[in-house]
């Protein structure tokens, strides 16, 4: 004689199917709640991220921003061969100096042998990969010997850092002399 069971022979299968239906419905409904608002607005990404990306802080400005206040340097810097050099390369980003239009902190000014280091970062002839068309390079200390100055001289003793040839040109004018380098430039 067949034993009596409380459950029908298929009841567990029905229960499983029911569980699947409930979980499936919950998943579909839940997904709509959990999706980021602008997901898929323009493509498979959160559309409002475009706004977030645009709101990234502009920390580095252009030289023009610096010249707004630093007037005399502007005249010198823009007239010389260093006009393409960014102020912020040597002095640091604008945002560390001015916040919301207000002065917040002093930017560093290179001093002493830091200046020489900085000059040679670009003008060092020993790094041969520098195209002549792009930059004038010098070998050290040969350059100092050639120019007949002491080898411990710093670059800015002859070259005004914002316009490297400013003083040299002026000096030549006064002396009525033409220097070797001048012919080339």
């Amino acid at each position: 004689m067949e034993k009596e069971y409380k459950s029908k022979y298929y009841s567990h299968v029905v229960k499983i199917v029911l569980i699947f239906i409930v979980v499936g419905v919950l998943a579909v409904v839940g997904r709509n709640y959990l999706l980021p608002d602008t997901m898929g607005q323009y493509g498979h990404y959160r559309g409002s991220d475009l706004e977030d990306q645009r709101n990234v802080e502009v920390r580095s400005h252009t030289n023009e921003s610096c010249f707004e206040c630093h007037r005399p340097i502007r005249l010198i810097h823009k007239a010389g061969v260093h006009k393409t050099v960014s102020c912020e390369f040597c002095h640091g980003p604008y945002a560390d100096h001015v916040k919301d239009g207000k002065y917040v902190a002093k930017l560093p000014v290179k001093k002493g042998m830091e200046i020489k280091e900085l000059c040679l970062r670009c003008h060092n002839k020993i790094i041969r990969a520098r195209p002549e068309e792009s930059i004038k390079v010098v070998a050290m200390p040969q350059h100092l010997e050639e120019m007949k100055v002491q080898v411990d001289h710093n670059c800015n003793q002859c070259h005004m850092v914002h316009d490297p040839l400013l003083w040299i040109k002026a000096a030549n004018e006064m002396m009525g002399m033409e220097m070797k380098g001048d012919k080339k430039n």
């Binding site: 920390r59 990969a129 520098r130 792009s134």
Partner: peptide, 19 residues
């Protein structure tokens, strides 16, 4: 490539802009 002098201004600016 024929103009680059390897000064690294770009790298410095990039680091400044984005920390």
């Amino acid at each position: 490539v024929t103009a680059c002098i390897g000064c690294g201004s770009c790298c410095v600016a990039d680091k400044n802009e984005y920390n």
